[in-house]
Amino acid sequence: MSELVVTLLKVLFLALLWVFILSAASVIRTDLFGRTVQASELPQQLEQPHRPRGRRRAKQTPRAVEVTNGNKQGLRADLFSGPVLIGRSSDCAILLDDDYVSTRHARIDADSSGGYYVEDLGSTNGTYVNGQRITAPTTITLVDSVRIGRTVLKLVS
């Protein structure tokens, strides 16, 4: 090959190396600004609760939340009229008079697939599903029990 071609190829290769670095730099630049999305659009990964093995998932659809144990035993809240808020605040559908319960403690709402999940709203003492403290929204069915403070709630059909 002629001297000229060799030099041209040499310079071309070095240019290619630096073009790689420049494109890497532009990837870094565009990477600084992610996409902004509505928080509600974020995928809500629902955690599966620790459920003792052998119990089948109940077939009926839940209609309400009921307090099954605690000083408000028997109190029910309808699930079809939107999210059910649980706490000490007066705007909660299930109002619990308990020192271990935060003002707005937890929420039970429908998920996209027709089931229901419970979400802790940053409470002090936590929300427990089948005895395990939840750290993320967790799907619940008729067999699961949700403990908030000294109160146990269940979905009922």
Binding site: L42, Q44, Q45, R88, D120, T124, N125, P137
Partner: peptide
Amino acid sequence: PAATRLEPSPDAEETQVIGR
């Protein structure tokens, strides 16, 4: 993206009483 909108509360698991 974070799967949950709420971080679990960082304090320990033990039960605390917040006097009302």
